[in-house]
């Protein structure tokens, strides 16, 4: 706990010890970490495998632009408002796509993202298909100096990652979180316990949508430019996130951290290879899914029997389970 706190403090002080490029990279890492935690909560715990989370990343980004440009909101207020609006929007979306079972739900989420992309491409005041840049006065309202802005968006990224990880962790330790694990392990058994599966899944969907939109707002606050293709990119906001979680260990709390570190290490070393890098990632994800479904963290854990986030209670019993 103390080590973690010191680590966070050191990272929080990064604007004083890190260069501009490192700061940017670290900020990006935090935002991916947050997206990975959110996707892992949905797919790894709630059984909602989405390949359309770019819908909410892009939506958050566009809300940031719309609310600051036309609503006159402060960028931070706009990002938070984007989260609230995304939560409201996600309810009717869920009502529709929750009708699709299992794997078809996944493609349904992708359709949703396409509808969002095509819709925002129709809004000419936001630049239509070619997109737009955040106006200078909005950018200036964040902080007067460039280094001030960069430090602020760095802290926002770090803060949001910490908040997301803490929320996911606390949620999974709560009664509702345990419910979720029960659903994952056996939907029939959970129904037998009188747990309302549909409602719990809906809550997870709405909350992750809101957080994803907030992260999306922060991503485009860093980028300062948005276009439908960048905002709703399935590669950037879903494929990478899925690879991070699968490689790190899906359905584990530690997996996304490991996955994010590995992902960025690979990216920084293989970036010159371009498309080959993505092929390597794809192969790696497939091999891990087939040979080690709990990812790198699962491998580490089976070797050393350790846990960063104590979530699983050890069963105190010495009579072996007889089974049925």
């Amino acid at each position: 706990m103390i080590i973690a706190a010191i680590g966070v403090l050191i990272l929080a002080a990064a604007p004083w010890w890190a260069g501009r490029a490192e700061l940017r990279l670290l900020g990006e890492i935090y935002l991916y970490l947050a997206l990975a935690y959110l996707w892992n909560l949905m797919a790894g715990y709630a059984g909602l495998v989405s390949v359309g989370q770019q819908a909410y990343v892009g939506f958050g980004g566009y809300m940031l632009f719309a609310l600051t440009m036309f609503g006159g909101l402060h960028p931070i207020a706009a990002v938070l408002a984007a989260g609230v609006i995304a939560a409201l929007l996600s309810v009717p979306v869920a009502a529709l796509i929750f009708r699709l079972k299992g794997a078809y739900f996944a493609i349904g989420t992708w359709v949703t993202a396409e509808v969002f992309r095509l819709s925002f491409a129709q809004v000419s005041s936001l630049g239509g298909g070619s997109g737009s840049s955040l106006p200078v006065n909005v950018v200036k309202s964040l902080a007067a100096s460039r280094s001030g802005r960069e430090a602020l968006s760095y802290w926002l990224a770090l803060g949001s990652a910490i908040v997301v990880i803490a929320c996911v962790y606390l949620f999974l330790r709560s009664r509702r979180g345990l419910t979720l694990t029960a659903i994952r392990d056996s939907e029939v058994a959970a129904a037998g316990l009188g747990i309302n599966i549909w409602r719990t899944k809906l809550e997870v969907y709405v909350v992750t949508s809101a957080f994803t939109a907030i992260i999306g707002g922060l991503i485009f606050l860093q980028k300062l430019r948005i276009s439908p293709d960048a905002a709703f990119s399935v590669n950037d906001w879903t494929a990478f996130v899925i690879f991070i979680v699968v490689i790190g260990g899906i359905g584990t709390l530690e997996g996304p951290i490991i996955g994010t570190i590995l992902f960025f290490l690979l990216r920084e070393t293989l970036a010159d290879l371009g498309t080959v890098y993505l092929i390597v990632l794809g192969v790696l994800a497939i091999v891990i899914m087939l040979k080690a479904p709990k990812g790198v963290w699962g491998l580490i854990r089976s070797r050393f029997d350790l846990e960063l986030f104590p979530l699983s209670y050890r069963v105190k019993t010495d009579t072996p389970d007889k089974g049925a």
């Binding site: 797919a43 590669n235 993505l278 794809g282 497939i286």
Partner: peptide, 20 residues
Amino acid sequence: ILPPLLVTFGLSVILQNALL
């Protein structure tokens, strides 16, 4: 349902980039 979904998703990324 996770393994088939994620494996075919990985396959999709591989195919796309191999064609590229």
